[in-house]
């Protein structure tokens, strides 16, 4: 399996294909909804060297404060699709070449990734405990007091972290959108066999919006 050194180069990103399984090694930062909203709406974000720390890991880890420093208990990638409102802006602003999360992102973020030469990596199964062991160092934490342990931004050093699979490549293709198109094609036959008429419509008791236009 291919291991990619972070920060990922444009060339490396553009060579990856949908479905490729990879691990990554190097530095990454974490964030969830609050990171996205604050970075774009309030211009508040951690003062990192985003050229060097260029991988954004969508996660709210379980962290334990110990006398020897912060310890990761488990870290399961969180659903990236809910950040879609800000995804493209965040990718462009920090020129991110690696996003790691769960699920996928939408067309706007895919477009931004294509522009900067980046990919979106999605998780394989639940693996928060194996991922914990691949985090070799918790380097820094930002906004812990304001946001709490789950939404804070952590900076991790990781070694052979993953594997993840390429769910959005650097050319605008999306693994899950292709799969969903196949599901859409299968659906009418399944509905027919369930006895749902092809022209079935739920009873509408609200003003017909098309009639008002």
């Amino acid at each position: 399996m291919k291991n990619i050194t972070l920060p990922m180069s444009k060339d490396t990103a553009r060579a990856l294909q949908l479905g490729d399984m990879v691990t990554v090694s190097g530095l990454m930062f974490t964030g969830r909804s609050r990171f996205h909203i604050r970075a774009i709406e309030e211009n508040i974000f951690p003062p990192l060297d985003y050229q060097a720390i260029n991988c954004f890991f969508h996660v709210g880890p379980v962290m334990r404060d110990t006398p020897d420093g912060w310890e990761v208990v488990s870290c399961e990638p969180t659903s990236s699709i809910r950040f879609e409102r800000y995804g493209a802006d965040v990718v462009r602003r920090f020129q991110l070449r690696t996003l790691i999360g769960k699920t996928t992102m939408g067309a706007r973020t895919a477009q931004a990734l294509q522009e900067v030469g980046g990919v979106y990596l999605s998780k394989i199964g639940l693996s928060g405990n194996a991922l914990r062991d691949q985090i070799t160092k918790v380097r820094q934490v930002f906004f812990l007091e304001e946001l709490g342990k789950t939404e804070a931004t952590w900076v991790y050093e990781v070694d052979h972290f993953g594997p993840f699979f390429v769910a959005i490549d650097a050319h605008g293709n999306n693994y899950f959108e292709q799969l969903a198109a196949d599901v859409s094609r299968a659906l009418p036959g399944i509905e027919r066999d369930l006895g749902i008429p092809a022209d079935y419509a739920f009873t509408n008791v609200n003003p017909d919006s098309s009639a008002n236009m």
Partner: peptide
């Protein structure tokens, strides 16, 4: 890929049961 999603998740549960983490970190 479908198989791997499951085998990885079962391994993750084994680690949790052995005291090394959680079945899923989003509790």
């Amino acid at each position: 890929m479908a198989r791997r999603h499951l085998t990885v998740s079962l391994q993750n549960a084994d680690l949790a049961r052995a005291g090394k983490g959680l079945v899923c970190a989003d509790t």
